[in-house]
């Protein structure tokens, strides 16, 4: 049974890559949007651009994983294609994990391009194993968050609207552009319950931008966020087929 589920997860992810992710809208949303933002900040202050690299990587992780999830989940629910997947001899959890994995693989490709590009051009020293680990865990956390928000609603536009809220809140509060330490105390506390804070912190530490954080804590918090998002998402999807 677990072999069937693993096979299902893999093929659903590959199929989603082919049908949805590797298409211009997903690529532009996943990579062009974060690049445009960072370019704007670079023009404002070119001297401190190296400090913006962790934020650029974190934003790419966030936007690329959630770029097509509304389509991947809500559009398929509407068309009945998701039901077709549920008729296969795999569990409902495997179907949703396949959808999440699709976002993770696409996000990894986009983030790898941005990370390798910036690290090599700017000559940054990276702790590669930690950097890859933080990025992968973050990809799972955000893809799971996207899946959870998508199964909460019915329509594609509702899911896209709902996804925009945490995405934009996190851009401003999680250290992408302004350090969390510089935020007012009340806002700072709020930033610590947002997963992107731990992505930015983990990437900063992997690139040696800051020394004060705790990368092990970042790893565990990102794992915890993934679980917190995945289980309700599975329950909510199962409820749609109760």
């Amino acid at each position: 049974m677990w072999k069937d589920n693993l096979r299902g997860i893999y093929y659903i992810a590959i199929k989603d890559m082919k049908t949805y992710y590797l298409k211009p809208p997903a690529v532009s949303w996943g990579i062009a949007f974060p690049l445009a933002w960072i370019f704007a900040f670079y023009l404002r202050n070119p001297q401190d651009f190296r400090e913006l690299v962790p934020g650029l990587i974190a934003m790419t992780v966030l936007f690329s994983t959630t770029a097509a999830e509304a389509v991947v989940i809500n559009f398929e629910l509407r068309l009945g294609s998701l039901e077709r997947l549920l008729l296969a001899p795999i569990s409902l959890s495997a179907v949703l994990l396949g959808k999440i994995l699709g976002g993770v693989i696409f996000g990894f490709m986009m983030t790898a391009i941005v990370t390798l590009g910036t690290v090599s051009v700017l000559g940054l020293q990276a702790n590669a194993p930690f950097l890859v680990l933080i990025i992968i865990l973050s990809l799972f956390a955000f893809s799971s968050l996207g899946a959870l928000l998508c199964v909460l609603v019915k329509e594609v536009f509702e899911a896209q609207t709902l996804l925009n809220l945490p995405r934009f809140v996190m851009i401003f509060l999680c250290g992408v552009v302004y350090p969390v330490s510089a935020l007012p105390p009340a806002v700072k506390h709020f930033a610590y319950v947002l997963p992107l804070t731990y992505t930015v912190d983990g990437v900063q530490q992997s690139l040696g931008s800051v020394q004060s954080g705790n990368i092990i804590l970042d790893i565990f918090v990102l794992i915890a966020f993934t679980l917190v998002f995945i289980f309700p998402a599975i329950k909510l999807l199962a409820k749609k087929f109760a």
């Binding site: 199929k15 082919k18 049908t19 949805y20 068309l79 009945g80 294609s81 039901e83 077709r84």
Partner: peptide, 8 residues
């Protein structure tokens, strides 16, 4: 409803 994938 014929619900296979339009893109494939």
């Amino acid at each position: 409803v014929s619900n296979l994938y339009d893109e494939l």
